[in-house]
C-alpha cells in the first residue's frame, strides 16, 4: 500500500508543479497580450477596406491569440457594407458564422447581445501566416476578429 501512496503523492506534486508553471505562464501571457494599441484594429480595417470607417467601435481589443477571438468590432450599416464589399472582393476571405466562443469573448457576446449568426469573422486560423504577409497594404493583419453591424443586434 505504501508504494502506491508515494506514487500518488509524487504524481500529484508533479502535476501541481506543471499546473502552477503553465498557469503562471498563461497569466503572464494574458497580461502581456491583453490590450492592443488604441486604433490598432481600426487602422488595419481601414487599410483593408481602403476607406475610412468613422463608426468603428472596438468592443474587445486584444492582441494575437491564435485560438481566441482578439477583437470584436461594431460598425454602422455604411461602414459594415464597406467591409463586406472588401471581403467579398477578396477571394481569400470566407464568411463563417459557425464558431464557438469561450471565456471572456463568450461573456462579451452575451453582454452585448451579439447574434453570432450575423457577424463576419475574420479568422486567422483558416489562412495561415503566409497569406497575411501577402496581403497588399495590410502587413500584419489582426488575428481573429468579429465584425458586426450595430443593427444586427437582437
Amino acid at each position: 500500500m505504501k508504494p502506491l501512496k508515494y506514487l500518488l503523492i509524487g504524481l500529484s506534486v508533479i502535476f501541481a508543479i506543471i499546473g502552477f508553471l503553465t498557469f503562471s505562464f498563461f497569466l503572464l501571457l494574458d497580461y502581456a497580450t491583453t490590450h492592443a494599441p488604441k486604433d490598432f484594429y481600426k487602422e488595419r480595417l481601414e487599410l483593408f477596406s481602403e476607406e475610412p470607417l468613422p463608426s468603428c467601435k472596438i468592443l474587445q481589443n486584444r492582441y494575437a491569440d491564435d485560438s481566441q477571438v482578439s477583437a470584436i468590432i461594431q460598425l454602422n450599416e455604411t461602414d459594415y457594407t464597406k467591409i463586406l464589399k472588401a471581403i467579398q472582393a477578396d477571394e481569400h476571405f470566407k464568411i463563417n458564422p459557425k464558431i464557438s466562443f469561450w471565456g471572456r469573448t463568450d461573456d462579451l457576446i452575451k453582454k452585448e447581445h451579439i447574434d453570432i449568426n450575423k457577424v463576419i469573422i475574420m479568422y486567422k486560423g483558416y489562412y495561415g501566416e503566409d497569406y497575411y504577409r501577402d496581403i497588399k497594404h495590410i502587413g500584419f493583419l489582426p488575428p481573429n476578429i468579429i465584425i458586426y453591424e450595430e443593427n444586427l443586434i437582437y
Partner: peptide, 8 residues
C-alpha cells in the same frame, strides 16, 4: 494546480 496540471 494538480487538476490544471492534469488538464494541461
Amino acid at each position: 494546480f494538480v487538476l490544471f496540471g492534469v488538464y494541461v
